[in-house]
Design a protein around this nucleic acid. Structure first.
Lengths: 347, 347
DNA sequence: CTGAAAGCGCTTACAG
DNA sequence: CTGAAAGCGCTTACAG
């Protein structure tokens, strides 16, 4: 139990008792009217409804939930709303939950596992019907499992969490990278490198897999030397451009780990007098805002975070209604956005 | 009462009764331990705490709130999380509420007054201790007042809401525009126009006021013809560039209503062969992402939405704890960010 | 079709 | 310092 300042809720709330007294019926009848039961006589219903309106009755969902052993809230835990990807995701989640009659309890962790523990602890006390969790980096899966307990279904989003057998929704990294690779191939490229990302990260592994898949489907065996690691930042990618060409001489195109890497590579290319989009083709991943604004604009994979959010909400609600269904692992679709950075190979 | 699908909360929650039985004390004693009362003997406390841990007890805050007539949630209603300004604002609100021990109930309206009514109706049923509301455009103030009632304190953010005497937090439009004007004056400009916005909107009025103030403080009487209206979109602003120069011949600079207007004006200037930043100086408002990325980059007013959010949360909590304090109208600070678009006047 | 009674999980006077 | 009892606002068998 965390310490919390609390506050008088309503000055003097109107209750079912007030309504019952006000129109000479029992509280049970008022309750039946509130819940739309067909057992109530039409006239009685009308009288009660008039009285509800007259006294400006506000339903107390917490009390009802307590009595019925139900919940009408879902917790949404993300790292940071100031990341547009997660903000859109949250918007999608809230939209879908709202139309299903649930309210969203928000929690943010700022990528801190400690804050995440605290936030989850506090949210769980509000007895949500379920939880959508995009784990902070370096999360302790079993600890979260213990904290949340078996009563609350959880959907994990975006980042794999070991030690907890929860449903999992992630971007289709593999398919995305394959789409990018196939796009470059279709333009006539044969010498395609994969640039950026850390080989240990699961998303990098999946994207590399998609790249290799695309190459092989075109009858090309990807050269392991053409997988060039680098941190997913613009500066790092720009700095590693020389290395890319050392390891992949003759490459005419690169599938980049993400947009930041691609934008950095563009800078690096420019510094070498290579014109991105004309002399060298490249693709990103994420479709961040700058992707459409760079020169040339960046061909990339749009991840549609809002749709992801809706999807996540839907998956969680399914789990909520069917707690004993087998654990699900779902992949969210990704869409190729073709822009200027991916041109045909120079003649 | 809106229809809502609901769900079993916990399979079989551990309650104070279970704990009481488990270590041979009364439920009252368990409750006292939970709430950290000094009335409980140290040994008893230790026994109870061990039992709480052993049975993995989870506090049921809803039940406690019901009994104590308190609330530990605050509703946050905004138009759209996919607007980075509001996403940052929400992040700030959630951060501040979280550290005060409240949980954030999220609601989004998508700028639709109808959805806003529905969302508020649903949120109110969860008995929040208060509400932070950034109203949808064309909101019906009195209707919202009626819906929310007197029991729930509300802080209105960003957009004035008539017909409801609620606390109000807004950006310091006036000071921001004055800062921009003074900046241009300090560079040597004397012929400064005000471009964009609708004269009816309260934010435009305030920004114009700040502009006039700045001009007068420098001994310059602003010419009403130099206030040129236009919708705050890029296309519209670009299209009205000619009109600006017809009405304000000899202007060497413009304070623009916001960043979109300024970016549009840049386009319009370019089309006339006028180089923004070199031949003509201009400023925006908002510091949207593109402001830093345009060529030249845009001098503008950063509105620090995250700080606004924290501030909003704090103001609301003050009201929650002191319901009868006089209504507050507060202005959030704004910071001038000097970039390339504001150069000295051409010689 | 309507009412009296019990109970969801908690807290809080009130006795002892 | 601890326990028995009542009650927050609601719902739901159970009678009638």
């Amino acid at each position: 139990m965390t310490t919390a300042r609390k506050t008088r809720a309503h000055r003097q709330a109107v209750t079912v008792t007030d309504i019952a007294k006000g129109c000479g019926v029992s509280r049970a009848t008022v309750s039946l009217v509130l819940r739309g039961s067909p057992l109530v006589h039409v006239d009685t219903r009308a009288r009660v409804e008039a009285e509800l309106k007259r006294q400006r009755y506000v339903y107390n969902r917490a009390a009802a939930n307590l009595r019925r052993q139900t919940s009408s809230s879902i917790a949404l835990v993300i790292n940071d709303l100031s990341n547009p990807f997660f903000a859109e995701f949250a918007a999608g989640v809230d939209e879908a939950l709202g139309s299903a009659g649930y309210v969203t309890l928000l929690g943010s962790t700022g990528e801190s596992p400690e804050r995440q523990q605290a936030v989850l602890g506090s949210l769980v006390e509000h007895a949500p019907a379920g939880m959508i969790l995009s784990p902070a980096e370096r999360s302790d899966g079993p600890a979260l499992r213990r904290l949340v307990g078996a009563g609350v279904p959880v959907l994990v989003f975006n980042r794999e969490l070991s030690g907890a057998d929860w449903d999992f929704l992630a971007l289709d990294n593999q398919r995305g990278a394959r789409l990018a690779t196939e796009h470059l191939l279709s333009l006539g490229h044969r010498h395609i490198a994969f640039f950026g990302g850390h080989a240990e990260s699961s998303s990098c592994q999946q994207r590399r897999l998609g790249y290799a898949e695309g190459m092989r489907a075109a009858g090309l065996e990807p050269d392991p030397a053409w997988l060039v690691e680098c941190s997913p930042t613009r500066a790092e990618a720009a700095g590693r451009t020389a290395e890319l060409f050392e390891r992949a001489p003759g490459a005419t195109a690169a599938v980049c780990y993400n947009d930041n890497v691609a934008l950095g590579l563009m800078l690096g290319l420019g510094a070498r007098g290579v014109r991105p989009g004309a002399d060298f083709a490249l693709t990103g991943f994420d479709d961040i805002t700058e992707a459409a604004l760079s020169t040339p604009s960046l061909t990339t994979l749009a991840v549609q975070p809002r749709e992801c959010g809706r999807h996540a909400a839907q998956l969680l609600l399914e789990r909520v209604h069917e707690p004993d269904a087998p654990v699900k692992r779902v992949v969210a679709p990704v869409r190729l956005v073709v822009r200027g950075s991916s041109g045909a190979p120079a003649a």
